[in-house]
Design a binder for these strands. Structure first.
Length: 451
RNA sequence: GUGGAUGUAGCGUAGCUGGCCUAACGCGUCAGAUUGUGGCUCUGAAGACCGUGGGUUCGAAUCCCACCCUCCACCCCA
């Protein structure tokens, strides 16, 4: 296929038909975050390569083989963000937000880029909703973040998703654990797969993740990080569990969760589904107490997470979660002849100024074709303006649902549409008034009323 | 990066033991079915370089090779 008409590998177009679903997810996530005190933050799509190399970690797969890195015309090494946290932290440090009131609560909707082989739930450009809670070391912060994710899933009416948590300790207890791991795996060195043998001294924790049956078997009896936590890390993890129990959030402790980004410390968690193929992690996050300092900021304990929006959407579609219905055109104003077409355009314009969805003919089509179009776009009302209507100043307005028509003065068309819509929402205009709703237009109706 | 499956109009498919394919069908789109009104029905039209590029052959959507894309698994992660 021609390169001009084909999207690059691993990218996805969102068609108008799909966009309402995206907006629903995005709005819900941002709104829930707002109730938790988060404010949106926006930061660049690309950063200096060094930021990710340092922040995410030189030895990670993401940095080693998945980044979109290039030299710009000024010979700077630039990288399209492979994740959100590093850029977000850079922004907070650069603008001195960490010198203000802590914790800082920032949420974002971004696209991320990783050069990977695409498959279900894995794209080269993907979108995530992320949130960072910066400057709070307490397990209360961890619990709040996890609660926020659960709340988002609940609001979205998602079921069949499970929370797994783990603690990977602080650098001190992790060092002890790594030693224990190395010792254990060295005793099985000959049986390990090739990649694991290479990992053994550099990053033994990754062997726990290996899917090769033999390594997996060996890993089953390996020392568990949870047994090597220092007192502080242990207390932190215990309190987190206690808090989750108390709020009523179910979880399982999975000691094999080892996040692939170097910055994580202590709490790590994943929300996993079995309904979207092998890329089952819909949301992943954890604490990163050392990251900000590593990037040159003040020592600031923090925790964050990211949700894969494509995966979330996939999950919702695969499990039959319903999405809110989209509102359709309130009135289609058809016309015959140029004069009438101009009048129709004026009427439509006035209606739109009031916040109604109104449409008219732009193709010079026959009356019949215009009516068909009105039907296709789901117009609730329709009318056709011709010479006689202009003369008499009246139109027949048809209710598309039942075919009944009513004669309306052209001057009063806007009021008519108004009453018809209020009637739909409240049963009748009288009911609306009874409910104390007055002076409503589609523009000032509270969002919970799906006008 | 490794392995497997796929690729025909906007969508879903038929054709694929090579010539009746100047590519068929359904949905969708557009236009008509007596003068200015949708949903049903009927008629008609537009729309495909049969993923791309090579090759075999008198002749290829159909056979061979390469590449690309999509999907699935590994890997990795959201």
């Amino acid at each position: 296929m021609a390169i001009l008409t084909k999207a690059p590998r691993g990218t996805q177009d969102v068609l108008p038909e799909q966009s309402a679903k995206w907006q629903h997810i995005e709005k819900t996530a941002m709104k829930v975050a707002e109730t938790f005190g988060f404010k949106e933050i926006r930061f660049p799509t690309f950063e200096h390569t060094e930021l990710f190399a340092r922040g995410v970690g030189d030895s990670t797969d993401v940095v080693q083989k998945e980044m979109y890195t290039f030299l710009d015309k000024g010979e700077r090494s630039i990288t399209l963000r492979p994740e959100g946290t590093a850029g977000c932290m850079r922004t907070l440090i650069e603008h001195g937000l960490l010198n203000g009131a802590l914790p800082v609560k920032a949420s974002y909707l971004t696209s991320c880029f990783r050069y990977e082989k695409p498959q279900a739930g894995r794209l080269r450009e993907f979108h995530q909703f992320g949130a960072e809670l910066v400057g709070a070391a307490s397990p209360a912060a961890d619990a709040e973040m996890i609660a926020m994710v659960s709340q988002i899933f609940e609001q979205l009416q998602i079921e069949g998703i499970e929370l797994e948590i783990n603690s990977i300790g602080c650098p001190e207890c992790r060092a002890k654990y790594n030693e224990a791991l190395k010792e254990y795996f060295h005793s099985h060195e000959d049986e390990l797969c090739e990649t694991c043998r290479e990992r053994l001294d550099r990053n033994p924790m990754r062997i726990l993740d290996c899917k090769s049956p033999i390594c997996h078997k060996i890993a089953e009896d390996a020392p568990v990080i949870l047994d090597y936590l220092c007192d502080d890390c242990q207390a932190h993890f215990d309190e987190l569990k206690e808090r989750l129990d108390s709020i009523g959030i179910e979880y399982t402790v999975n000691p094999t969760i080892v996040r692939g980004l170097d910055y994580y410390t202590r709490t790590v968690f994943e929300f996993v589904s079995t309904n979207i193929g092998s890329q089952g992690t819909v949301c992943g996050g954890g604490r990163y107490d050392g990251l900000i300092e590593l990037l040159g900021g003040p020592k600031t304990p923090s925790i964050g997470f990211a949700m894969g929006l494509e995966r979330l959407l996939l999950l919702m579609e695969n499990t039959g979660v319903s999405f809110p219905e989209e509102s359709t055109c309130d009135i289609y104003i058809g016309s015959m002849g140029t004069k009438a077409s101009i009048e129709a355009a004026n009427l439509v314009n006035s209606l739109r100024a009031e916040g109604f969805k109104a449409e008219c003919d732009l193709c010079g089509r026959s009356v019949k074709a215009q009516m068909k179009y009105a039907d296709k776009i789901g117009a609730k009302l329709s009318c056709i303006i011709g010479d006689s209507e202009l003369e008499e100043g009246k139109v027949k307005v048809k209710n598309m649902a039942n075919g009944e028509a009513e004669e309306v003065e052209l001057d009063e068309l806007i009021e008519f549409v108004y009453e018809a819509r209020l009637g739909d929402v409240f049963g009748s205009l009288e009911d609306a008034v009874c409910e104390g709703v007055s002076n409503l237009t589609p523009l000032n109706i509270p969002p919970e009323i799906n006008f």
